[in-house]
Design a protein around this nucleic acid. Structure first.
Length: 464
RNA sequence: GGCGGCAUAGCCAAGUGGGAAGGCAGUGGUCUGCAAAACCACUAUUCCCCGGUUCGAAUCCGGGUGCCGCCUCCA
């Protein structure tokens, strides 16, 4: 069954056809490591992880590259020489390099907690400075650049079809620009390829170049590194919707101008997470929630957030609220319980994946990653007349896409000695019909994070 | 001002011409000493509003209203 994805470039769902049959080159814009990722940022990485898993589920061999932006990223055109990394360093009294290292580690911990699989290649912008310089040099040679006092700029007027991805009307855009223009820029859409260090000042991060000491503009790193690590295999490029108009538009312009060939074939963008009356989550707003403070610290599994993200299609804004997280928490717990139930059957290990439901599941996920529909298929399957063992095998197969560690959820657990003792004491209390003691012991066991289930076949204890 | 997106039950949310998925919450039942969990059943005559096309519209067309994003660093 073919895989269809929505391509921002054509504004339509298209069948995914990779450059090399059976393989898929994937480049996803990574974090700027000057602060913790918030859960809105993480929604995009969850979407990309699902895409990657679906590609693999369809049999494609995926090569995934993610960059770490550890330099540049100017806070504004007039903020000469000031960028997020150096600003973060000043804020925390550490070197820019330490900041990058620290937040890179924090980011990797976040995605690990969300069961987001690591890219095959992590690449730091600062590890590919020569390639970025080379790309700028080529652009200069071909006449796409010009120099101002503060750097080397890309002349967007020289690149026909500049607005192809964003579909913007450039004339109108110019009129409506809210920000004071850099007077040396020929056009509002022109962007820096190389920024020169301010005269007399020494930055923590700066490099020599044919144009003087400085640092790369933000956009050039993704162009340079995607080509460096993906080679010819420029299949899919992902990011958040906010990158359509500027970052990705600029990547396409500079890359295609330099090579004279099409850059990526498919561009996919994840929608925002909204919070507090439908507003997007942003580092500058009051609504900055991290995985740590919204989940881990409150004893809620980060996988609850992963599960929650499946309830909304990736191209639609997702509502975040306490209620939605509670719903996801209950929903995930229920799913784990369901999986545990079907794993119980004697034929659990000999079950086979249901071709019928696999087909339905594939149909959902291959329709532009329709996870809400895929989740409905799972419920339909679990409630069908399939044998328990087959249900188990099928849901575990689906978990290759879901990434909810359902095998572990269903695995039998060894109870700690203290819990075991309480269970035994309760068993004796129940034998002598001492319900008060039984109930008290049940409360104690549950307080330790276990669910107590009394059924026809005795008592069962399950970790929550 | 330009460009783009969204509006479906108490909440979250699929569905883009002919049966209103699914989850959470809720209600009833089975099980249980009682619960919980699990399981079964029920829960939108109707899809923001108005008009049109059609035998038939949540879905197409026109108009309106509301919300959001990007155009400034941003997932």
């Amino acid at each position: 069954m073919p895989l269809y994805v929505y391509n921002t470039l054509t504004r339509a769902k298209e069948q995914f056809r990779p450059i090399r049959p059976g393989e898929a080159g994937l480049y996803t814009c990574g974090p700027t490591v000057y602060n913790f990722a918030h859960i809105g940022n993480l929604r995009t990485y969850l979407f990309e992880d699902i895409l990657k898993r679906i590609l693999a589920y369809n049999g494609f061999r995926v090569r995934h590259v993610m960059n770490i932006t550890d330099v540049g990223h100017l806070t504004g055109d007039r903020d000469m020489g000031e960028d997020k990394m150096e600003k973060g360093a000043r804020r925390e009294g550490r070197s820019a390099w330490d900041i990058a290292e620290f937040y890179t580690r924090a980011f990797r911990q976040d995605i690990a907690r969300l069961n987001i699989s690591e890219p095959d290649i992590w690449c730091k912008a600062t590890d590919s400075i020569p390639e970025q310089i080379e790309l700028i040099r080529v652009l200069e040679e071909k006449g796409y650049t010009y120099r101002t006092r503060d750097g080397i700029y890309f002349d967007t007027a020289k690149f026909p079809g500049y607005a192809r991805l964003s579909n913007q009307n450039l004339d109108a855009l110019r009129e409506g620009a809210r920000v004071e223009r850099n007077p040396e820029k020929r056009s509002a859409t022109d962007f820096a390829l190389w920024k020169l260090s301010p005269p007399g000042a020494t930055r923590q991060m700066e490099w020599g170049s044919p144009w003087g000491v400085g640092f790369p503009g933000w956009h050039i790193e993704c162009s340079a590194m995607s080509m460096k690590f993906l080679g010819e295999q420029l299949d899919i490029h992902c990011g958040g919707v906010d990158h359509i108009d500027i970052h990705h538009t600029n990547e396409i312009a500079q890359s295609e101008a330099a090579t004279g060939r099409p850059f990526f074939n498919y561009w996919m963008h994840g929608a925002f997470l909204n919070i507090l009356g439908g507003k997007k989550m942003a580092k500058s707003e009051e609504n900055f929630l991290t995985l740590e403070n919204a989940f881990v610290k409150r004893g809620i599994s980060p996988l609850v957030y992963r599960f929650a993200s499946f309830q909304t299609h990736y191209r639609k804004p997702m509502e975040y609220s306490e209620e939605s997280i509670q719903a996801a928490k209950n929903g995930l717990e229920h799913l784990c319980n369901q999986v545990r139930e079907v794993a119980k059957g004697a034929d659990a290990s000999s079950g086979v994946v249901s071709p019928e439901f696999r087909e339905k599941f594939l149909e959902a996920v291959n329709d532009d990653l329709n996870m809400p529909r895929a989740m409905a298929v799972i419920q339909e399957m679990l409630k069908s007349g399939l044998a328990a063992g087959d249900k188990h095998a099928t849901v575990i197969d689906f978990d290759r896409v879901l990434g909810l560690s359902l095998v572990q959820a269903a695995a039998p657990q060894q109870l700690p000695a203290n819990v075991e003792a309480l269970v035994e004491a309760r068993r004796r209390a129940r034998e002598s019909k001492d319900w008060a003691a039984s109930d008290r012991l049940r409360d104690e066991i549950q307080a330790l994070g276990y669910t107590v289930k009394d059924g026809r076949d005795g008592t069962e204890i399950v970790k929550r």
